[in-house]
Nucleic acid binder design. Structure first.
Length: 193
DNA sequence: CGAACGATTAGCT
DNA sequence: GCTAATCGTTCGA
């Protein structure tokens, strides 16, 4: 299997798109990335928009490192940092198609429904046992690994979910027609292959 | 120091 | 579709 050769020092838009169709391994569990969102340093919806704070410090780390944050006091969400170090850009991994370690994920999620196992950033975090202990680690070192996609994929761009600022920017990327998205994409959008 | 507010989700109507 | 749950972070006084 090929290790994904994604250049994380580029823009979050590029990285978010390239991540669709690659396989994310965390420990013994793995899934196909079917949904991502880009957040940039000059993006009003981004945690990094107002500068570095104790919470978002990892977002200003080296490209290819992990940024984990607590959402709504409940969930842990998983991001990969991009652009040059200190910029404050990242890609949020929002949904996976479960592939390996499914029983472990079902146990952690307390549900057997494959469709909802990793569909949404909070669910994905719970399924993969993501937590603050992963903040600042690297995506190319254990327990993490990215496996390159094996074929061309059909990608759609959509508006991001759950934000108020810059809500109309189409910075969400989906694997076309995947049943494992956190929310279905529109019927017809600009295709990116 | 107090208060408002989320890059969300499950469960109920 | 609507709302409660739940708490760390951020910002204003």
């Amino acid at each position: 299997m090929r290790i994904a050769a994604i250049d994380f020092s580029t823009s979050p838009l590029d990285v978010a798109e390239q991540l669709i169709g690659t396989i994310l391994h965390v420990g013994n569990s793995a899934g196909l990335i079917v949904e991502t969102e880009a957040y940039d340093h000059d993006d009003p919806a981004s945690h990094s928009f107002k500068g570095k704070t104790p919470r978002n410090a990892a977002m200003f780390g080296a490209p290819g490192s992990i940024y984990v944050y607590r959402s709504y006091g409940i969930h842990w969400c998983f991001n990969i940092v991009c652009r040059e170090i200190g910029t404050g850009a990242a890609v949020l991994i929002r949904a996976l198609e479960p592939l390996q370690g499914i029983e472990d994920m079902q146990k952690r999620r307390r549900t057997e429904k494959l469709k909802h196992l990793c569909a949404g950033p909070g669910r994905l975090g719970e399924a993969l046992a993501i937590g603050p202990q992963h903040n600042g680690l690297r995506i190319d070192q254990p327990p993490f690994r990215l496996e390159a996609r094996q074929k061309t994929v059909h990608i759609l761009s959509e508006t991001r979910i759950g934000i108020r600022k810059a809500a109309d920017w189409r910075w969400r990327f989906c694997l076309k027609n995947s049943p494992f998205l956190s929310r279905p994409h529109a019927k017809s959008q600009t295709d990116k292959v």
